[in-house]
C-alpha cells in the first residue's frame, strides 16, 4: 500500500492578534502544522506499521517553515517528503492547491490512499480532499472520525449534522480526517534526530504543469458583531444579576 498525506502550514488562530483598527496581524502570527493534518499523518503511519504501507507527505508553499513541517512528518514516521514550492501560497485558490497535489500524486503514485486533514485551522474549508478526489477520479470519504482497514476494505465512520454515516470502500480513495480520528503520537528524540538527516524533495508548480490561480482579497478585517453588551457582576450582587436574567428570559422570547 502506498499513502500520500498532504499537510499544510496553518496560522495558529488562537494566537492571532489585531491592530486597534481591527486588522489582523497575519505576518507575525505563529504558524504550525494543522491539528487534523497530524491526525492524517498518524493514520498513515499506523497503516505503515500494521500493513507495511509506504508513506509520503507533501506540502505546497515555500520557506523554512515548510521544511520544518515536512521534518515534523518524518519525525512521526513518514518515509518520503515533497515541497511544491510556491511563493505566497496563502492566497492560492483551493482548486489550484488541489490540482498541484493531484498532479504530484499522479507523478509519484499511484497511491492507494490519499489522507489529509478535513479542515485546517485558518481556512477550514473542508474542500481540498474532495477537490483532490475529483481531480484524480477516485471516491472521497470526508470528515472521518474513525478509520479502519481490514481485508482490503476501508471502513470509515463520520459524524455529521443529521447522524452517523458508516462507509465501506476499497482503495484507491481519498479520506479526510477530523481531530477526533486519533491521538497523534509525540515524536521521540531519536525520530527527531533521524528526521533532520532525511532528504526533502522539491518541485515547482511549473514542473507539475499547473497554472496558479489566486484569490483577490479586497479587504480583511476583524469580524465584530454589534451586541448590547449589558453585563452584570454576580460578585457584586448575585440576587440582582439573577433578577435581571429572569427579566430578560421572560421578555425576549
Amino acid at each position: 500500500m502506498k499513502i500520500l498525506t498532504p499537510i499544510k502550514l496553518t496560522l495558529d488562530i488562537s494566537q492571532l492578534k489585531y491592530e486597534s483598527s481591527g486588522e489582523p496581524l497575519i505576518d507575525i502570527a505563529p504558524r504550525k502544522i494543522g491539528d487534523s493534518d497530524k491526525c492524517a499523518i498518524e493514520e498513515a503511519v499506523r497503516l505503515k506499521e500494521k500493513h507495511n504501507a509506504y508513506t509520503v507527505a507533501v506540502t505546497v508553499g515555500s520557506g523554512p517553515e515548510h521544511e520544518r513541517i515536512i521534518r515534523d512528518a518524518y519525525a512521526m514516521g513518514i518515509d518520503e517528503g515533497y515541497i511544491v514550492e510556491v511563493k505566497e501560497y496563502e492566497n492560492l485558490q483551493a482548486i489550484t492547491i488541489g490540482e498541484i497535489i493531484a498532479s504530484l500524486a499522479k507523478k509519484t503514485g499511484p497511491y492507494d490512499l490519499i489522507i489529509l486533514g478535513a479542515g485546517s485551522l485558518d481556512t477550514h474549508s473542508y474542500t481540498l480532499g474532495p477537490i483532490i478526489a475529483s481531480k484524480i477520479g477516485v471516491p472521497i470519504i470526508a470528515g472521518v472520525d474513525s478509520l479502519s482497514y481490514n481485508d482490503g476494505v476501508f471502513e470509515a465512520r463520520c459524524v455529521m449534522e443529521d447522524g452517523t454515516y458508516t462507509y465501506r470502500v476499497s482503495p484507491p480513495i481519498v479520506v479526510t480526517v477530523t481531530t477526533e480520528a486519533n491521538e497523534p503520537r509525540i515524536p521521540t528524540l531519536k525520530t527527531i534526530l533521524r528526521s533532520k538527516k532525511m532528504e526533502i524533495k522539491k518541485l515547482t508548480a511549473e514542473d507539475l504543469g499547473i497554472e496558479l490561480k489566486r484569490i483577490e482579497i479586497e479587504e480583511l478585517k476583524r469580524y465584530v458583531v454589534q451586541r448590547k453588551k449589558i453585563i452584570w457582576d454576580a460578585g457584586e450582587d448575585l440576587e440582582k444579576a439573577i433578577e435581571n436574567l429572569v427579566r430578560v428570559l421572560t421578555s425576549e422570547v
Binding site: Y126, T127, P130, I131, I132, S134, I140, A142, C158, E161
Partner: peptide, 14 residues
Amino acid sequence: TIKGRTLAGLYAGH
C-alpha cells in the same frame, strides 16, 4: 455544513 462543503469541493473540482 460538512456535507455541503464536501459536495461543493467535488463539484468545483470537477
